[in-house]
Design a protein around this nucleic acid. Sequence first.
DNA 1: CCGAACGTTCAAGAAGTCTTGAACGTCACG
DNA 2: CGTGACGTTCAAGACTTCTTGAACGTTCGG
Lengths: 160, 160
Amino acid sequence: MDEQDIRRRHFVDQMGILMVRSGGSVTMGRILGHMLICDPPEQSLSEIADGLGISKASASMLTRQLEQLGLLTRVPGKGRSTTYRMPIGNWTEVMREQIALAHLFVDLADQGLDLVKGGSDEGERLEDLRGFYQEMADEMTDFARRYEARNPQSARRRLG
Amino acid sequence: MDEQDIRRRHFVDQMGILMVRSGGSVTMGRILGHMLICDPPEQSLSEIADGLGISKASASMLTRQLEQLGLLTRVPGKGRSTTYRMPIGNWTEVMREQIALAHLFVDLADQGLDLVKGGSDEGERLEDLRGFYQEMADEMTDFARRYEARNPQSARRRLG
DNA sequence: CCGAACGTTCAAGAAGTCTTGAACGTCACG
DNA sequence: CGTGACGTTCAAGACTTCTTGAACGTTCGG
């Protein structure tokens, strides 16, 4: 293992750590790191598993999760063989979950407001939370639109 | 347990689920939910633990974590007794972690770009990621500033 | 000085998630 | 057909995180 390999491994592991802090798992992040710097950019499941020293079972499960998050694209090959690659300009897809989550907070805050309709203080706390998440959702939706406008390639699916 | 209690319990549990989706734990979210609708708004550790049916050990640990996240404020009482309450307009504090995380992605992407300086395709993927997180960080910082300007009470600490 | 109330910490157990080897189904190729 | 390569699934084990009761230190009121 030469100097370059060590640095690549370090990059991959760091991406694993950042993915954990983002809500995912270490290995999911390591796959992402691998797919960011691998050559060739398209890799089969076996190549990913071998490249990272993980089982094909993990690779199969995690690539599917990453695909669902919009962080990995499946490229069907001939027969059963398929390869994966990092999509370019697809980050608004990733924001979708965040925006949806913010809306869930807004909705739950509304339920709470209905619940404490009598009191006064409770309302203040809930409206504070509601206001924040509402603005947050609006802001992110706006940002996603601008990002898509600037990166037309990303417009695979549109925001609702 | 009457109708009202059931609805309160439901609200608390839903907040637990949303907190999990946000990267925290169920019980952390349930505490947050309790603190959003509790009366009086300031509660001691024992009141929180009893109110949710969890141990004081959990309550102690989780209130500290929530305090560090800026989602709970410690209100020192006389002697050893302290109470907690939900702060108002303190949401920019919560954004801090997100912004810091985005910066970490940018930094790691830079390391990666340095690593693959030879190739061409790798650079594209890394620059795409870097660009997104850089803009994301800028956008959130900007939003936080505007939010603070609109909610002066929140300005306990300023963004750097 | 004593006792009660409170929050903190710790080790142990419970619960959940992650990872894997092995078995399987499918497809291309000879 | 038969064989090999590939991705998928499953049950089992490893591993990590969560939760708790009990023991402890501190403070207030008597």
